[in-house]
Structures are given as C-alpha cells and as structure tokens.
C-alpha cells in the first residue's frame, strides 16, 4: 500500500525525463506552428506534471481514494476554466447582436436624410431663380 519504497533508479529516470522535456519545450517554442505552439507547450507541461505526480508524489502506489481526490482537483479546475471562458468568450457575440443595425430603422433614417437633402436643394434652387 502506501509504504512502497520507490527505487533511486526510478527517481533518476524521472528526473532525466523532466530535464529532456524542459529542453524540448524551449526548443519547440522557437518553431512557428501557429496556435499549435500553445497546444504542444501545454501537452508537454501536462506530461511533466503527470510524471511528478505519479512517481515523485507516489500517486502510482497510493490507495485509489487518493486518485479520486487528486482527480477531483483537476476536474474542478477544468469546470472553472470552462464556465469562466464560456462567459468571457461569448460576450462579444451578445454585444454584436445589440449593435447590429435593424433593417427598418436603417431605412427610416435613410428616408428622413434623403427628404432633408431634397428640401435643402429645393430652397437653394428657389433662391437662384430670384
């Protein structure tokens, strides 16, 4: 159960893997993959986290109850990200719905403007005839 002594060789192997992955994340940051740069960087970070959690933090050898606790933390974090972003990233859509010109209002404004222009032109013409 929890009294599982992980060998030193395992720790060294995990350490070396983490160092290689750190070098990798710096290297790939200089390659242009567009939005995929963030996806790759976060995938490497998640992989590094998994190695630390499973071996350095011994979760691999712990009771399933601890897997549930650790998993619950990650799930609630994802809920926080998802709900917050579903709010912030959708605000522009609602704003644009309000500022979009409504067809009949636009046409009425255009008609009023046109009528005013014609009136001004008429009075100008009348002045010239004098």
């Amino acid at each position: 159960m929890s009294h599982h002594v992980v060998g030193i060789k395992v720790y060294i192997a995990i350490f070396l893997s983490l160092m290689v992955l750190t070098g990798l994340t710096v290297w790939v940051a200089f390659i242009n993959w567009g939005f995929m740069n963030d996806v790759v960087a976060m995938s490497i970070a998640v992989l590094k986290m998994t190695l630390v959690v499973l071996f350095f933090m011994h979760l691999k050898y712990q009771a399933r109850l601890l897997w549930l606790i650790a998993g619950a933390g990650v799930i609630w974090l994802m809920i926080m990200f998802a709900l917050t972003l579903s709010d912030y990233r959708s605000r522009e859509w609602i704003e644009s719905a309000f500022t979009r010109p409504v067809p009949w209002v636009a046409s009425e404004e255009a008609a009023t403007y046109q009528a005013e222009q014609m009136k001004a032109q008429e009075s100008e013409d009348a002045g010239a005839h004098h």
Binding site: A29, F30, I31, W33, A41, V53, F56, M57
Partner: peptide
C-alpha cells in the same frame, strides 16, 4: 506541488510567441 506550478508558469510566461 510547488514544482508543478512552475512547470506551467515557465511556458505560459516565458515562451509565448518566441518564433
């Protein structure tokens, strides 16, 4: 745990748009 926080902070702060 503190190490894991840094594992995420490093790419998110230092490595944005380096290409």
């Amino acid at each position: 745990f503190v190490d894991i926080v840094w594992i995420f902070l490093f790419p998110l702060l230092y490595l944005i748009g380096r290409h």
